[in-house]
């Protein structure tokens, strides 16, 4: 892989994990039950760890002296390479679960390939991450079933959560990642869980794209404003 392609690849992986982790960390202290609060924090911590590894690697490949922090805290929206799905707001618990369900099931398939890829540095991070993500996917899938099957209210909310997120699915299978091959297995997984939950697959729609090229939703700018505040307000300081 050429360095610039590899850099971009590591950046996409790192930004996905970073933005998803940042979103999940917003739940800390506010979840429906203490046990769930701890679970969401664990997932967020896994993702922050992955982000740190992938972004450090991106910086190393780039060779301009930028590390994970420089990349996370000193880029603007146009330079972020995460998919649109992960930057979507938490909404209610069902919306958060819908996002996690779609993302983790995809990320697990992707990370399995990366763990087996010839690039050793990516593969090493992927091998560690894949176990974490398998748990995230399981956790989210089980909650989709609980909420889909639970009460009339939880079913309505679960459907609404999936409806919100569904337009961001196609982007995950952008040919840029060499990913269309993953779609079949992902569809099968999603279908299996939705069937168990008594839910229908959301209707196909025109996918929203652009995250991988830096063209994000309005939400990312606000997320970065908050996340980067200290680094922006006190340039050059160490923490």
């Amino acid at each position: 892989m050429a360095d610039d392609v590899l850099f971009d690849h590591a950046l996409r992986l790192g930004d996905d994990a970073l933005v998803m982790g940042q979103r999940l960390s917003e739940w800390c202290g506010h979840a429906p039950m203490l046990e769930v609060d701890l679970a969401l924090a664990n997932i967020a911590l896994d993702l922050l760890g992955q982000a740190t590894h992938f972004l450090n690697l991106a910086g190393e490949i780039e060779g301009k002296g930028r590390d994970a922090d420089a990349l996370a805290f000193h880029r603007d929206v146009l330079d972020f390479r995460n998919c649109l799905l992960v930057e979507q707001p938490n909404g209610d618990f069902a919306q958060t679960i819908a996002r996690q369900f779609l993302f983790s099931n995809w990320q697990e398939l992707l990370m399995r390939e990366i763990a087996a890829a010839p690039e050793p540095r990516l593969a090493a991070i992927g091998a560690k991450a894949v176990k974490e993500i398998a748990y995230h996917a399981k956790f989210a899938s089980e909650w989709v079933v609980r909420l889909g099957d639970g009460t009339a209210e939880s079913r309505t909310r679960m459907i609404a959560g999936l409806e919100w997120m569904w337009r961001f699915v196609d982007e995950l299978f952008d040919p840029m990642d060499g990913a269309p091959s993953r779609r079949g297995e992902w569809d099968a997984r999603i279908n299996r869980t939705l069937t168990e939950a008594g839910l229908e697959l959301p209707k196909p729609r025109r996918g929203a794209m652009g995250g991988r090229a830096g063209h994000h939703s309005e939400h990312l700018g606000h997320l970065l404003t908050e996340m980067q505040f200290l680094q922006r307000a006190y340039p050059g300081a160490t923490w």
């Binding site: 046990e35 701890l38 956790f139 089980e142 609980r146």
Partner: peptide, 8 residues
């Protein structure tokens, strides 16, 4: 859920 909560 109990197993996962215990794990977490």
């Amino acid at each position: 859920m109990a197993i996962e909560a215990a794990r977490d």
